[in-house]
Design a protein around this nucleic acid. Structure first.
Length: 453
RNA sequence: GUGGGUAUAGCUCAGCUGGUAGAGCGCUGCCUUGUGGUGGCAGAUGUCGCGGGUUCAAGUCCCGUUACUCACCCCA
C-alpha cells in the first residue's frame, strides 16, 4: 500500500456510481427551485475575512487563503474560504443591489469549507443547496412559508431518500415568552432551550440557574420548550402557560401560519412539526427558524436549516431582510452512501456497449457508426475498448452496469442483447431505443424500509 | 481546541500467554478456439501506518509520532 496517498478526513470523495446519486439530487433541487421561480447564482469561493467574521464567533473555522509562492509584501492575507452561502449572498446582494430586482429570489448550490473536527455527517468541505428571498427594507412574511414549501417540495421528489421531519419555530415566540416571564435578556434562555436536543431538562435547567435565574423561573423557561405539535394546537398549549407579551403573540401567529402553509406538502415521507425547542445557534435569525431531521438518521442532526434574518445585509442606508433555508447535500448523501450503500445501478452513463469485432480500422469505424446512430437519438453509449472475445466484452459491460451490448453480425446485420435477461434481438441502429428506465442510471434505495419507516 | 478508540492484502477482518502472515470476498488465467453470470482448477498481491526501545526473536510488549475514527464544542 502506498502510505503517502490516503483519504483526507473531512473531505469526502465519491466513486462514479455514488456521484450519480449526488448529481441526481442536485439536478432535482435545481429543477424544483426553478419551478418555483428562483434564479441560480454562484458566488466566488473567497470573501474578505472581515466580511466572513461579521457573523460572529466562528473565526477559527474559516480557512485563510495564502499563496505558497508568496511575493514579498504579498497582501493575500485577509481572504478566507466561505463557510456558508448566506453570508456571501448577503454581500452579493448589497454589492449588486442596483442591478437586482426585489424581492430577489435565488438558489445557490456550492461547496463550503469549515475548519471543524470532522465526524459522521460533518465535513470540512461539503456541498450546500440554499434558497433565499431578500427584500429591500421590508420582506413580506409569506416568504417564510414559501421557502419552507419549496424545500419540502424538492425533498419529497427525491424519492430514494428517507423521510424528513421539518421542525419549525419562531424566535419572536421564544423571545416574547421569556420577556413576558420577566427575563431581562432572553438570549441565554434561547441558547439553553436549544440544547434540550442533546441534554436533559435537568442539565439545561441547571445551566439557567447558573445564569442567575431561580429554579422556578428556569422551570417555566423550559415549559415552553416541551411543546410541539404537527398542527396549530401548540398555540393553545402556549396560552395555557399564562404568559403574555406582544412579541409572543406575533410569533404564535407566524408559526401557526408556517405550519398551516406547509400542511399541503405533508405526506408519507414529509412531516412538519412546530417544535418550540428549536432556537438555532446563529444569532442573526430574528423570526422563523427551521431545522430538519432525516428519518432513521436523527443522530446526524439537522440536515436542512435556516430562517428569517431581518438585518444580515445592509449598506448603512438600506437593509435587506431575508429568509432562507439551506440543505446540507453532503450531510444527507455521504452518510447514506456509506451506511446503506446508496448507489446508482451503473457507474457510467452508457446504456449500450457496442462490441468490437477485430482490430481492423474498419471494424472500429463500423462500431463507431452504430454508436453515433444511437447518440443521435440521445442514447448514451460507448464502443468496446478492444476486440476481446465477446464474453470479455460482455463482462466489461456487466462490471460497469451497462445493460445492453450491441453486436454486428458477419453479414452486416445488427443485434442487441440485454445482458440481464440474456435476451438478444435484431435491431436497427437508426431506430432502436432502450426502455425509458434503462436510458439513464437509476438510483434505488438500498434499504426500501428506510423510506416507509 | 479537549477526551477516548483504531491502524495487518484492493475490501472486510483473523492472528491466543512474543517464534519472521492468514481467511472470505474481489482480481488474473484455464476448463470454455468469438456471447458473460453458476461451477471446477490454478495463480498474483503485504516495507503488519511511521520512528525508536525491550528481547536470542516483535504484527504481538513499551514510548513517541502521524493518520483515521467516535464523543464534547459547534453546525449543513
Amino acid at each position: 500500500m502506498n502510505t503517502k496517498i490516503r483519504p483526507l478526513s473531512g473531505f469526502p470523495e465519491l466513486l462514479p456510481a455514488q456521484r450519480v446519486v449526488e448529481q441526481q439530487v442536485v439536478d432535482t433541487l435545481r429543477h424544483v427551485f426553478e419551478l418555483h421561480g428562483f434564479a441560480g447564482i454562484e458566488t466566488r469561493a473567497v470573501e474578505p475575512l472581515d466580511q466572513l467574521l461579521t457573523k460572529g464567533e466562528t473565526s477559527k473555522e474559516v480557512y485563510v487563503l495564502r499563496r505558497l509562492q508568496e511575493q514579498e509584501g504579498g497582501k493575500d492575507a485577509g481572504l478566507g474560504l466561505h463557510f456558508d452561502l448566506t453570508v456571501p449572498f448577503a454581500r452579493y446582494v448589497v454589492e449588486n443591489a442596483g442591478r437586482l430586482e426585489f424581492p430577489f429570489r435565488r438558489y445557490q448550490v456550492q461547496k463550503v469549507w469549515r475548519g471543524e473536527r470532522p465526524q459522521d455527517g460533518r465535513y470540512r468541505e461539503f456541498t450546500q443547496a440554499d434558497i433565499d428571498v431578500v427584500g429591500r427594507d421590508t420582506l413580506s412574511f409569506h416568504h417564510d412559508v414559501e421557502v419552507a414549501r419549496v424545500m419540502l417540495d424538492a425533498l419529497r421528489r427525491i424519492d430514494f431518500l428517507p423521510g424528513f421531519r421539518l421542525q419549525v419555530n419562531n424566535r419572536k415566540l421564544l423571545e416574547g415568552y421569556f420577556l413576558g416571564l420577566g427575563l431581562d435578556d432572553p438570549a441565554p434562555a434561547m441558547t439553553a432551550v436549544d440544547k434540550l436536543d442533546k441534554q436533559s431538562p435537568e442539565a439545561v435547567a441547571a445551566l439557567l440557574v447558573e445564569g442567575g435565574l431561580d429554579a422556578d423561573l428556569a422551570r417555566r423557561c423550559l415549559a415552553i420548550a416541551e411543546i410541539s405539535s404537527t398542527d396549530t394546537s401548540f398555540v393553545q398549549q402556549v396560552r395555557d402557560l399564562g404568559v403574555e407579551h406582544p412579541l409572543l403573540e406575533e410569533g404564535l401567529t407566524e408559526l401557526a401560519a408556517v405550519v398551516e402553509g406547509c400542511a399541503g406538502l405533508v405526506g408519507p415521507r414529509v412531516e412538519v412539526v412546530a417544535d418550540l425547542r428549536i432556537a438555532r445557534g446563529l444569532d442573526y435569525y430574528t423570526g422563523t427558524v427551521f431545522e430538519t431531521r432525516m428519518r432513521g438518521h436523527e443522530a446526524l442532526g439537522s440536515i436542512c436549516s435556516g430562517g428569517r434574518y431581518d438585518a444580515l445585509a445592509t449598506d448603512g442606508r438600506t437593509t435587506y431582510p431575508g429568509v432562507g433555508i439551506s440543505l446540507g447535500v453532503s450531510r444527507v448523501l455521504v452518510p447514506l452512501i456509506s451506511r446503506t450503500g446508496l448507489v446508482a445501478d451503473r457507474s457510467v452513463p452508457s446504456a449500450v456497449l457496442v462490441a468490437l469485432v477485430d482490430d481492423a480500422p474498419e471494424a472500429r469505424a463500423a462500431s463507431e457508426a452504430v454508436a453515433d446512430a444511437l447518440r443521435a437519438r440521445d442514447v448514451a453509449c460507448e464502443v468496446s475498448p478492444s476486440p476481446q472475445k465477446f464474453g470479455k466484452q460482455i463482462r466489461y459491460a456487466e462490471r460497469r452496469g451497462i445493460p445492453f451490448v450491441w453486436f454486428t453480425t458477419a453479414e452486416g446485420g445488427h443485434e442487441v442483447k440485454d445482458i440481464r435477461s440474456g435476451e438478444q434481438v435484431t435491431a436497427d441502429p437508426a431506430a432502436w431505443t432502450p426502455p425509458h428506465e434503462d436510458l439513464r442510471p437509476q438510483v434505488t434505495s438500498h434499504d426500501p424500509q428506510e423510506m416507509t419507516k
